[in-house]
Each structure stands twice: as C-alpha cells, then as structure tokens.
Design a protein around this nucleic acid. Structure first.
Lengths: 228, 228
DNA sequence: CGGGTAATTATGCGAATGTATAATAGACTC
DNA sequence: GAGTCTATTATACATTCGCATAATTACCCG
C-alpha cells in the first residue's frame, strides 16, 4: 500500500544513516516474521514497514536472504544480551542468581507472544542453512552452559553427568514454560509462570528457590500456595 | 518437475478411491510442511509428492487452505491417538502409567525432527485462523488434562491449585525436552531424554518414577547414574 | 464391446514474488 | 549557490503462486 502521491510525483524521502536503515529493515523483518511467518516477510512488506522502498534491501543487504540472515543474527544476539542483563546487579548468592536468571527467562521481553512466532518462522530456514544452524546451536548451548554454570555454583554434590542432565532438565522446564506462555498468553496469571518455574527447577535441583521470591518483583509478596 | 513424457503425450494415470487420494494429499502436505515450512508446501509441490497433478487438490478439497486445515486436523488427531496408545496395555499402578505416558512422549514417533518442523510450519496459520486456534487449544488442554489426571491418580496430598501448577510444570518439562530433542536430534543419547524426563517429573511430584524404568525398553537395564 | 461419467490432467490467467537496472533527488562540498 | 555523489525511488522482468476452466481418458455398466 505505497501511500499514494499526486500523479506523476515521486515519493519524497530524507536520507538516513546506514546504521539506522539497517536496523529499521532488520526490525521490520523480525516483526513481520513474528506476526505472519515467512510468507508475510516479503521484500515489499518489509520495505513498507521500514518506511522505504524495496530497492533499499538490495542496496544494503544484497539480497533478501542476506537480510533474513542478518535479522536472525540480531535475534540471537539480543537473546544472549538479555540473558546477560538478567544477572546484572543481582547479589552474589548462587541460589539468588539462578532464581533471577529463571525469572528473567519467563517474563517479557523474553517471554513474548511474538518471540515464539519469530522462532517458528525461522526454524526451517535455520535447519536448511548450515551457517544459521551453527549459529543457532551455538546460541542454544551458550544459554544452557550459562544455566549449567549457575547450577554448578550451588555446590551440590553431583557427578558431571548428573550436572549435565540437571541442566538439560532445567532448561527444558524453562523452554516449555516459555513455549506455553508465549502461545497461550492469556492462559496464565501474572507471575504464575515464574513461580511454577522456580518451584520446578528447585525440585529438580533439590533446592528451595522460592525463598528468593522477595527479589522477584511480580511474585514477591504473593503467598506461596495460591497464585491467581 | 513433472516427470517428462514423450512430446504430445498425456500423463497416464489410474483412478483411485477418494479416501486414498485425500490421505495421500494430506500426507504430502504434512511432509512438505515439516521439511520446508509453509513456503515449501505449494499446491504444485504437494501434488507432485502425492503423485497427482495440482488440479486434484481443488477437486477434492476446494482450495489449498482447506487442504491445509484438513492436514492440521489430521495432525492433531494423530497426536491424541498416540497419547491414548501410550497407555494401552500398561499396568494399573498410577506411577507406572505416568512413567509410560512420559516415555511415550519423548521417543518416536512423537519425538521426531519432522514433528517440530510441522508444528512450527503451522504456527502462524493456527494463530491467524480462529477455527484452527480453537482446535489447537483443545488439543493442548486435552493433553495437559490427561497428564493432570495421571498426576492426580498418584494420591498425593495437594490442593487443586497446586495440582494445576504441577501439571503445567510437568507438561513444560515434556514439551521442553521434546523441543530440544527434536531440534537437535544428535544432541542426546538413546533413552537419555526419557531418563531425564522421568527424573525431572519425579522430582517435581516428589515421587520416584525411575523405579519404573524396567517397563521402559530403552533404559530398562542401564544403571541409574550414567547414560551414554 | 461400446457409451457415460467423472476422476484426472492440461492449459491459461491474474497477482505476487525476488531481483536487476535505470532514473531521480537529497545532502554535502567548495 | 552550483556541482557532485550516492542514497533512494521507480520501473521492468522472469518466475512462481493459487485458482479457474477446458480437455481427456480411465473405469463402470449395459
């Protein structure tokens, strides 16, 4: 729907920095991919949402595939950055840090109805493109290793194999809750997923993580048993 | 790539029953959706894989959207059927039944690299189509209720709210392991996901489920601690 | 063995896709 | 303020998409 102009007139524009244009196009790509999947992320739709014309995609990225790759790379970078941010400013106690990490993974902006759409939209492209697959696997393992390091800091007595299994299980809890919460946004009360996640991970690791809920804004003062 | 025939010759064919043609087209749709996502599931590609020409899609389903809906409905039906099959022939003890249910969800054919591709491929269409969304939510809740019923049979002392939270958490573990195992098929040893799932769910419910591993083929005789 | 019928194929069409190239006009320099 | 560069737009094109319609032929029934 290129906003119409008077017949014979050329669309006015203002020049912008390369950086701004790139991020605008990447953002538009992610938004469309999240909302409507690969079929909605066409060059024309992307350009329109970014406020430019399709030619700029080729100008800045060479091809749509390259823009798509760049958008996925930006997505992965953003996810890891959020994971790092989650531990910023948190106390030194291992249990508290683990609780903060879990809570951050189960609330916006990580838990977002668009996030799972974005993830699903890229899935096939990732599986088909070796470069993207390697990038994806690296990001996934980085996240799991981060989690495993937090678990190891708990100073439990556990073999390396058991530590790995625990990390996989805790990661699965977080992933599963992230999935359910993103697909059915209205299916859970505020903070409910965080509380369930803390309890489940705590049970798997045989540690009480809910005792750190005073540090978790959305569930700090709610009594333990019943969440809306 | 319509397999070539001598110039001027018409493609030979044999008539088949409506049922066979419908299932062939639905199967082809699911395969292509799983392998390459929505962009790969074109009418021409579907027809080619089903061994017919595109016109038959219109003839039997009216439109591609309707075929797509039928394929998704078939997918959901298949999933619930597998869930029911998992409990067939299992003993009456609640813990054993729960363990069997978990194990069935974490091994083929439920755990399949194609399954997650299929799920991802349909995600946006499901979210956009109210009819599909309702069907999806019904299927999801049916699965979770099934799980919750198995948990309730354990005769633990737990409030209804707690039971709901436990069911959500256990479902999240299974979903998360299913996701990781499907996306990274080579990342886990045989039976490793089943073992991790049994241990994690058992920890959440404060019950030992690994004691039922003798009923689980792939991990029956492996010692507890270390899995390859 | 010879129609009748409809299952199946063949063909065509308008719209949308990605990409390539040409044309224009903002913004900077001197 | 004229000149120049290139960011940006405009246009064109081959391909592919879903869908509609026409043509044919495999199978059933007499």
């Amino acid at each position: 729907m290129q906003t119409t102009f008077l017949a014979g007139e050329r669309r006015p524009y203002i020049r912008d920095s390369e950086e701004n244009r790139r991020v605008a196009l990447i953002q538009a790509t992610q938004d469309l991919m999240a909302e409507g999947g690969p079929r909605a992320a066409t060059v024309r739709a992307i350009a329109e949402r970014a406020g430019v014309t399709p030619g700029l995609i080729r100008h800045y990225f060479g091809s749509k595939d390259e823009l798509s790759r760049a958008a996925y790379a930006a997505l992965m970078d953003g996810m890891t950055a959020k994971g790092a941010d989650a531990l910023y400013g948190v106390g030194a106690e291992p249990g508290e840090r683990l609780a903060a990490f879990i809570a951050a993974s189960l609330r916006p902006p990580v838990l977002d109805s668009k996030a799972v759409g974005l993830w699903a939209g890229y899935l096939h492209q990732v599986q088909a493109d070796p470069a993207l697959l390697a990038q994806h696997e690296a990001g996934y393992l980085r996240y799991r290793d981060q989690l495993q390091a937090l678990i190891a800091d708990l100073d439990r007595i556990a073999s390396p194999a058991r530590l790995r299994q625990d990390a996989i299980a805790c990661n699965a809890v977080i992933d599963g809750l992230w999935l359910e919460g993103s697909v059915l946004p209205g299916g859970f009360g505020p903070g409910e997923l965080v509380r369930i996640g803390l309890r489940a991970v705590g049970a798997i690791l045989d540690r009480d993580l809910l005792c750190y809920r005073m540090f978790i804004p959305e569930i700090g003062m709610v009594p333990d048993g019943e969440t809306a």
